[in-house]
Simulated assay, not measured.
Amino acid sequence: MNEHQDEIIPARHPGRVVAAVLCITIAGLVIVSMLQNPAYQWAIVVKYLSATTVLTGLGWTLGLTIASMTIGVILGIIAALMRQSANPVLATIAAIYIWLFRGVPLLVQLIFWYNLAALYPAISIGLPFAEPIGTIPTNDIITPLVAALLGLGLNEGAYMAEIVRSGLLSVDPGQREAAQSLGMSPAHTLRRIIIPQALRIIVPPTGNEVIGMLKATSLVSVLSISDLLYSVQGIYGRTLQTIPLLIVASIWYLVASTILTTVQRAIERHYGRGHRSSHHDALSGLFSLSRPGFLLGSKRRG
């Protein structure tokens, strides 16, 4: 028998080689063009990358991202639970909230909140149909920062509501029924059984929403908030160095989004590992004859 008969010859893919060479060639031409074109003004880019004004704007951008996502996640969880409620009033209110804030563009919402005083010049404090205890001018409450948080947070809450709801629906209904049969309260079931499993579905799109929120904060520049984009706009408005300052902003957005993507993937691996190890025996482990009273790792009540 020929000793070469059992040798496995890998299939040739000339199309892949051609595509790879073509991509490398195009990328090389782009990089060379960027380095040789004096209009990019790389010296100006390096100069302003660590400028105090730019770094302060970056801090505002990160702060707005964290605050708005916190508001969005809290509202999303509440709206998702209301959407699944057996009470038709709660479910309808949640559905209208999701429909409204997902349907109106974010920029329109930001401008609307900023101009709320045109509808309500003052906000009265007191009981309905009674003399107000006090009145506060709306503009004293709805500052540009508050308008930005309202617009970003309420808009994000509508998207997070659907993400959380899809995660809750992904859990087998039998696990909820089994938990109830063992005497676990609905809140305890949600906290110990449903949410830990739903996180596998919730975390990946939530990570994408965080990155999307990072970029969406650039819209608050229309409210004159000194975020990253507004900061570089102020600089190139004085120096007329528009392109290098926009490159500075782009670099910092890319750095922040890269860090967030790395964190997102680490969290996904964490929850994905737990899912893979328990995928085949999640339902069979719900009831254990050897350890009665235990449910998916939760301790016996009482």
Rank of each mutant, 00 (worst) to 15 (best):
Q5H: 15
D6Y: 15
E7M: 15
E7S: 15
I8Q: 14
P14R: 10
P14M: 12
R16A: 03
R16H: 04
A20K: 12
V21T: 12
I24Q: 01
V30D: 07
M34R: 11
I44T: 12
V45F: 00
Y48C: 07
A51T: 02
L55R: 11
L55Y: 09
G57S: 05
G59L: 10
W60E: 06
T61H: 11
T65D: 09
T65A: 05
S68K: 00
S68P: 13
T70G: 14
G76H: 05
I77S: 05
L81G: 02
M82E: 01
R83H: 13
S85V: 01
A86S: 13
L100N: 06
G103R: 04
P105W: 08
L107P: 12
N115A: 07
N115F: 13
L116N: 03
L116E: 03
A117Q: 08
A117D: 11
A122R: 15
I123M: 12
S124N: 13
S124H: 11
S124Y: 05
I125T: 06
E131L: 15
G134N: 14
I136C: 10
I142D: 00
T143I: 05
P144C: 03
L145R: 07
V146H: 07
A148S: 13
L150I: 13
L150K: 10
G151K: 03
L154F: 08
N155I: 04
E156R: 08
Y159E: 03
V164D: 00
L169A: 09
L169D: 13
S170D: 08
S170Q: 05
V171P: 15
P173E: 08
Q175D: 02
Q175F: 01
E177I: 01
E177H: 01
A179R: 05
A179V: 08
L182E: 08
H188A: 14
L190K: 01
R191E: 13
I193R: 01
I194W: 03
Q197D: 09
I201D: 06
P204D: 07
P205L: 01
T206I: 03
T206A: 11
G207H: 07
V210M: 03
M213K: 05
K215W: 03
S221M: 10
V222M: 04
L223W: 08
S224F: 09
I225M: 06
L228V: 04
L229P: 06
V232Y: 07
V232Q: 11
Q233Y: 05
I235Y: 00
I235G: 00
I235Q: 01
T239V: 05
T242D: 07
T242M: 07
P244S: 02
P244I: 01
L246C: 06
L246S: 02
I247K: 01
A249N: 06
A249E: 06
S250L: 09
V255E: 06
A256N: 09
Q264S: 07
A266V: 09
E268V: 02
R269L: 14
H270Y: 15
G272D: 09
R276Y: 13
S277T: 14
S278E: 12
H279G: 09
H280W: 10
A282Y: 09
L286D: 08
S290D: 10
S290C: 04
S290K: 10
G297W: 11
G297A: 15
R300Q: 15
R300E: 15
G302L: 12
